[in-house]
Design a protein around this nucleic acid. Structure first.
Length: 196
DNA sequence: GATTTGATTCTCT
DNA sequence: GAGAATCAAATCC
C-alpha cells in the first residue's frame, strides 16, 4: 500500500461516520491554522439530494470523485469559496464540508484577511468565512491535505472526539431530516442554524 | 438559450 | 428580518 493510501485510512468509511472524526482536527494553510468545531457530511451519487455529487460528475465536483483527503473547494453565490475534504473510497463522491472552526495559529494573518473589526470567534464561523481565513480559493481545489508536502494540511486528533452533537444541515433545502451536521457543544465558533 | 437557484455573508432597518 | 452582491450549475422551454 502506497504511503498516501495508508494516511487516508481514517477517512475511509460512511461519510456520516467520518465527519464527526474531523471535529477537533486542525487544518493548516501556511501561517494560519484552524481547529474544526463544526462540519457537515454530504454523500455520493444518488444517495443525498443535497450533495453536489448527487446527479453525477460535473466539472465543478470532479474532485469529489477522486481519492479521500483531497480538498474540494467550490465557488458559490457569486462571491464565496467553501472547502470540503473528500472521504470514502475513490469514486464514492462523498465529502465533509468544513463549516466552522477556531483560529489557533496565524491570528494576525486571519484578521488581516477577514477584517480587523471581526471578533476572533467569527473569523472562521461559517464555511465561506473559514475558507477566507485560511486563504483558500479555487487554486486550492484538489490539494491533498494528507500529503506532507501539500500547502494545506490536515491533522486529525490523536483520539476522536467523543462528545459532539448533531442535527440538520444548515442552509440546505432538501434532505432536511438528515442529521448530518456535527459540532462541538459549547464552542462559540459554531455557526447559528438557519433553515432554507 | 433563458431563467432560477444556491452547502453564504454583509449591511441596513 | 429583508435585500443585495454576483456567477456556475441546474432546470426549464
Amino acid at each position: 500500500m502506497a504511503p498516501l493510501d495508508r494516511l487516508s485510512r481514517p477517512l475511509i468509511g460512511p461519510v456520516e461516520k467520518i465527519a464527526p472524526r474531523l471535529l477537533g482536527a486542525v487544518v493548516r494553510s501556511g501561517a494560519v491554522a484552524i481547529r474544526l468545531t463544526e462540519v457537515e457530511a454530504y454523500a455520493g451519487v444518488g444517495q443525498d439530494e443535497a450533495s453536489h455529487s448527487h446527479r453525477g460528475r460535473t466539472k465543478r465536483n470532479a474532485i469529489m470523485f477522486g481519492p479521500a483527503g483531497h480538498l474540494y473547494v467550490y465557488f458559490t453565490y457569486g462571491m464565496h469559496w467553501c472547502a470540503n475534504i473528500v472521504t470514502g473510497v475513490e469514486g464514492s463522491a462523498s465529502a465533509v464540508l468544513l463549516r466552522a472552526g477556531e483560529v489557533v495559529d496565524g491570528l494576525e494573518l486571519a484578521i488581516e484577511r477577514r477584517g480587523s473589526r471581526v471578533p476572533n470567534k467569527d473569523l472562521a464561523r461559517g464555511p465561506a468565512r473559514l475558507a477566507a481565513a485560511l486563504g483558500l480559493d479555487g487554486s486550492a481545489n484538489g490539494l491533498n491535505v494528507l500529503d506532507p508536502s501539500s500547502p494545506v494540511r490536515l491533522t486529525l486528533p490523536r483520539k476522536p472526539v467523543q462528545e459532539f452533537e448533531s442535527g440538520p444541515r444548515v442552509g440546505v433545502a432538501k434532505e432536511t431530516e438528515r442529521p448530518w451536521r456535527f459540532w462541538l457543544p459549547g464552542e462559540p465558533t459554531v455557526s447559528p442554524y438557519r433553515r432554507r
